[in-house]
Computed example of a mutant assay.
Amino acid sequence: MANSRPGALFGAACGVLLLAGCSAEAGSGGAASDDAAPHWGPTSTPSATATQSATPPTGAGDVSPHPYVGMWVTADGHIRQMLLANGRYDEARGERESAYTGSYQILGTRIEYVDDTGFSADGTFDEDVLHHAGYVFYREGSDAHRQAREER
């Protein structure tokens, strides 16, 4: 059966190489540091999974999540934003779960959001504090979060 389509294996291999080449080129941007590479989901650089396999990783433990993945909350807990490892976010406001959902990209300490309606926004991380859209978010359970709740 392998001889019935001799170009199929070659075509698949070229596709993987092309994908890896495009991913590496797209993420390089002339930057010297991994911190400058955009982050969409579980890997720190777009080429990491493309060079390993033609299929995305299947297990949650395959790649470490980005350090900013997790729950970010305002001091009063009214706004809760979950940054998911797959490059998506889910934001709750008060009793309204999933009030805003969309994708995010992290570049160094900067985060750029595009919600599912097409609206975009950005923010900046400072360790366990996120400044976004005029709000201050804290990594849930961090010392910064505990201190902000005490100061209220």
Score class of each variant (00 low, 15 high):
residue 61 G to Y: 15
residue 110 R to E: 08
residue 151 E to H: 15
residue 104 Y to W: 10
residue 29 G to L: 12
residue 123 G to C: 11
residue 114 V to I: 11
residue 67 P to K: 07
residue 132 H to W: 04
residue 58 T to N: 04
residue 141 G to C: 08
residue 23 S to H: 06
residue 126 D to H: 09
residue 41 G to R: 02
residue 2 A to N: 07
residue 145 H to K: 07
residue 85 A to H: 03
residue 16 V to S: 07
residue 42 P to M: 15
residue 37 A to N: 10
residue 12 A to W: 04
residue 34 D to Q: 13
residue 23 S to V: 14
residue 81 Q to W: 15
residue 128 D to G: 04
residue 79 I to K: 14
residue 92 A to Y: 04
residue 71 M to H: 03
residue 64 S to I: 11
residue 69 V to F: 01
residue 12 A to H: 02
residue 106 I to M: 06
residue 113 Y to C: 01
residue 86 N to I: 02
residue 120 S to T: 12
residue 44 S to M: 11
residue 75 A to S: 06
residue 57 P to K: 04
residue 5 R to W: 08
residue 94 G to H: 02
residue 72 W to E: 02
residue 151 E to G: 07
residue 85 A to K: 09
residue 46 P to L: 14
residue 147 Q to A: 15
residue 98 S to D: 15
residue 4 S to Y: 10
residue 127 E to I: 08
residue 20 A to L: 05
residue 69 V to E: 01
residue 73 V to A: 12
residue 23 S to T: 12
residue 74 T to M: 01
residue 111 I to Q: 09
residue 35 D to P: 03
residue 1 M to K: 02
residue 72 W to V: 00
residue 68 Y to H: 14
residue 106 I to R: 01
residue 100 Y to W: 13
residue 12 A to L: 11
residue 49 T to F: 07
residue 127 E to R: 09
residue 28 S to A: 11
residue 84 L to E: 08
residue 49 T to C: 10
residue 55 T to Y: 06
residue 102 G to M: 05
residue 20 A to W: 06
residue 15 G to I: 09
residue 68 Y to M: 12
residue 152 R to A: 10
residue 59 G to E: 01
residue 131 H to W: 02
residue 113 Y to T: 00
residue 120 S to M: 05
residue 116 D to M: 05
residue 114 V to L: 07
residue 97 E to G: 08
residue 135 Y to W: 06
residue 116 D to T: 13
residue 102 G to N: 03
residue 94 G to W: 00
residue 116 D to Y: 13
residue 121 A to I: 01
residue 97 E to I: 15
residue 60 A to T: 14
residue 73 V to M: 07
residue 134 G to K: 04
residue 64 S to R: 15
residue 77 G to R: 10
residue 121 A to V: 03
residue 37 A to D: 07
residue 144 A to S: 08
residue 63 V to L: 09
residue 98 S to V: 04
residue 125 F to A: 11
residue 10 F to K: 10
residue 82 M to N: 12
residue 100 Y to A: 02
residue 5 R to V: 07
residue 134 G to E: 00
residue 97 E to Y: 11
residue 102 G to E: 03
residue 24 A to C: 09
residue 118 G to P: 11
residue 90 D to E: 14
residue 106 I to P: 03
residue 2 A to R: 06
residue 108 G to Q: 08
residue 8 A to K: 12
residue 102 G to V: 11
residue 121 A to Y: 06
residue 90 D to Y: 05
residue 103 S to H: 02
residue 90 D to K: 09
residue 24 A to P: 01
residue 48 A to K: 09
residue 30 G to K: 05
residue 148 A to C: 07
residue 77 G to K: 08
residue 128 D to M: 03
residue 69 V to D: 03
residue 65 P to G: 07
residue 64 S to C: 08
residue 16 V to A: 13
residue 129 V to N: 03
residue 105 Q to T: 12
residue 89 Y to S: 03
residue 50 A to I: 04
residue 37 A to K: 12
residue 51 T to A: 14
residue 46 P to T: 02
residue 69 V to N: 02
residue 18 L to C: 08
residue 77 G to Y: 04
residue 22 C to L: 14
residue 122 D to M: 04
residue 62 D to G: 01
residue 30 G to S: 05
residue 7 G to F: 04
residue 3 N to S: 04
residue 82 M to V: 00
residue 42 P to C: 13
residue 37 A to F: 10
residue 34 D to W: 13
residue 99 A to M: 05
residue 83 L to T: 03
residue 126 D to V: 14
residue 110 R to N: 12
residue 62 D to I: 01
residue 137 F to W: 12
residue 110 R to P: 00
residue 60 A to C: 06
residue 83 L to S: 05
residue 146 R to A: 10
residue 105 Q to P: 06
residue 2 A to S: 13
